[in-house]
Design a protein around this nucleic acid. Structure first.
Length: 227
DNA sequence: TTAACAATAT
DNA sequence: CATATTGTTA
C-alpha cells in the first residue's frame, strides 16, 4: 500500500493548471467588434447594403472575396470613423487591420483602410511641414477637402505622437490630455482652417448612396449617423 | 504565412 | 485625383 494511497503529487499541480480557455487572450486578434462597441465610437455599423445586385451582372453581393467589389467612396462620415479609430488606437496600433476592426464597418476591407491610411499619412506629413493649420505646400485645397472635414487628433501632427497602448478600455475620452514631453516646447494649436470649405450643403447629404461613375460602380458606405 | 507599407496602376 | 492593386519587406 504504498502507491495505492495515491499522494498524487503530480495530480495536484495538474489540477491547478488553468484550462486552455482560461488563459491566453493574447493570441486573440486585437479589438473585436464587441470591444469596439464597448469603446464609445458610436455603434457598430450595420451593413451598408453591399453592391447593387444587378440581376444580370454575374456578380454576387455576398461577402465573397476574390471577386471585384465596387470602389469604396470615403464619405466624411466614414472618414470620421476612420479618424476616431486611429485616434483611439494611437500611432503604434493604428495599422490597417486594427483600424478596420475598430471601425466595425461591414464590407470594409483591410485593403480599403490601408489605401486610405496611406493617403492620410501623406496628408499629415504635409501639414507638419507648414506651421499652424494653414494649408499650403503645394497641396490643393480640393484635395484635402475630405481630410479637412474631420478634426485631426492633434498629436498626429507633431512627431511625439506617443500614444498609450491599447488599455484604454472602458472609458475613452476625446481628450488625451497628455501632450507628453515637448522636447521643443512647441505646443501649437492644430486648428484646422475651414475657410476653404467648398459647397458642402445639400451635396453630401444623402448617405447610403450608390452611384454609377462611368461604368464603374461606386459604393458609398452608410451614414454613421453623426459627424 | 500574414500583414504593413511603399510603389505603382487604374 | 481617389482608390485599387501589386511588390517588397518584416
Amino acid at each position: 500500500m504504498k502507491e495505492d494511497d495515491e499522494p498524487n503529487w503530480f495530480s495536484k499541480w495538474e489540477d491547478d493548471l488553468p484550462s486552455p480557455e482560461d488563459l491566453t487572450p493574447l493570441s486573440q486578434t486585437l479589438i473585436t467588434a464587441d470591444l469596439a462597441t464597448a469603446f464609445d465610437i458610436r455603434t457598430p455599423i450595420p451593413h451598408p447594403h453591399q453592391p447593387p445586385p444587378p440581376p444580370n451582372s454575374g456578380e454576387f453581393d455576398s461577402a465573397d472575396r476574390t471577386l471585384k467589389r465596387p470602389r469604396l467612396v470615403w464619405t466624411p462620415q466614414l472618414h470620421k470613423r476612420f479618424v476616431d479609430a486611429v485616434a483611439h488606437l494611437g500611432i503604434k496600433n493604428a495599422v490597417p487591420k486594427t483600424i478596420m476592426q475598430l471601425m466595425g464597418v461591414d464590407g470594409l476591407t483591410r485593403e480599403n483602410v490601408a489605401s486610405h491610411l496611406q493617403k492620410y499619412r501623406l496628408y499629415l506629413k504635409r501639414m507638419q511641414g507648414v506651421s499652424s493649420g494653414g494649408h499650403v505646400s503645394g497641396g490643393d485645397p480640393a484635395t484635402d477637402h475630405l481630410f479637412a472635414s474631420s478634426p485631426v487628433p492633434a498629436h498626429f501632427l507633431h512627431r511625439n505622437s506617443d500614444q498609450f497602448m491599447v488599455g484604454n478600455y472602458g472609458q475613452l475620452q476625446p481628450m488625451y490630455g497628455q501632450f507628453g514631453f515637448p522636447r521643443n516646447g512647441q505646443v501649437e494649436h492644430p486648428l484646422v482652417n475651414r475657410q476653404n470649405q467648398q459647397v458642402m450643403g445639400g451635396l453630401i447629404r444623402n448617405p447610403l448612396a450608390l452611384s454609377c461613375e462611368d461604368e464603374r460602380k461606386v459604393l458609398t458606405l452608410f451614414p454613421t449617423g453623426d459627424d
